[in-house]
Simulated scan of single mutants.
Amino acid sequence: MKKKLIILFLTSIFFLKCEKKEISATIKIKIELENKLSKEYPDLNFLKIYKNGKLFKEIKPDGLPFIQHSIKLKNLEEGKYEFEYLNIFEQKIVRELIIQESKIYEISLNPDYSDYKQNFKKSLIRKLKVNDSLKITYRSQGCFNREEDSVIIYKKEKFYELERNGKTTKLTDKEVNNLIKMECELNNIKFGGCTTSDIYIFSGKNFKKDFIDNTCKWNGWQNLKGEMKWK
Rank of each mutant, 00 (worst) to 15 (best):
S70N: 07
T168L: 06
D62W: 04
S70E: 03
Q68F: 13
Q118W: 07
L55W: 01
E78T: 09
E183F: 09
I212E: 10
K17I: 04
I153S: 03
F159G: 09
C143F: 14
W221Q: 00
C143P: 12
C18L: 12
A25Q: 12
K208P: 01
E32D: 15
K80R: 08
Y41Q: 05
V151Y: 14
S150G: 04
K155T: 04
K21W: 15
L44G: 02
I29Q: 01
L44H: 10
E58W: 08
Q141N: 04
S70Y: 14
K72Y: 15
C143V: 11
K54D: 08
N223P: 06
N75Q: 10
T215S: 09
G142C: 02
E82V: 08
K60H: 10
K156S: 07
T11F: 15
I27K: 10
V130L: 14
M1H: 13
F120H: 12
S108P: 05
Y160L: 09
I93L: 01
F89V: 01
L186G: 01
D173S: 07
K20D: 03
E40R: 12
L109E: 02
N219Y: 00
S12F: 07
E22S: 09
Y160A: 07
L16T: 06
I104G: 04
C18I: 11
I13D: 03
K21T: 11
T172I: 07
K39P: 01
R95A: 00
Y160S: 05
K231E: 13
T195I: 11
C184W: 05
E32Q: 13
N187T: 10
L128N: 03
F191R: 06
L97N: 14
F83G: 00
T26D: 15
K17Q: 11
N214I: 00
I23F: 10
D213R: 02
S114P: 02
K229H: 01
L179T: 06
K2A: 08
L124C: 07
E34D: 11
I67C: 01
I23R: 11
E34Y: 15
E78W: 08
D43G: 00
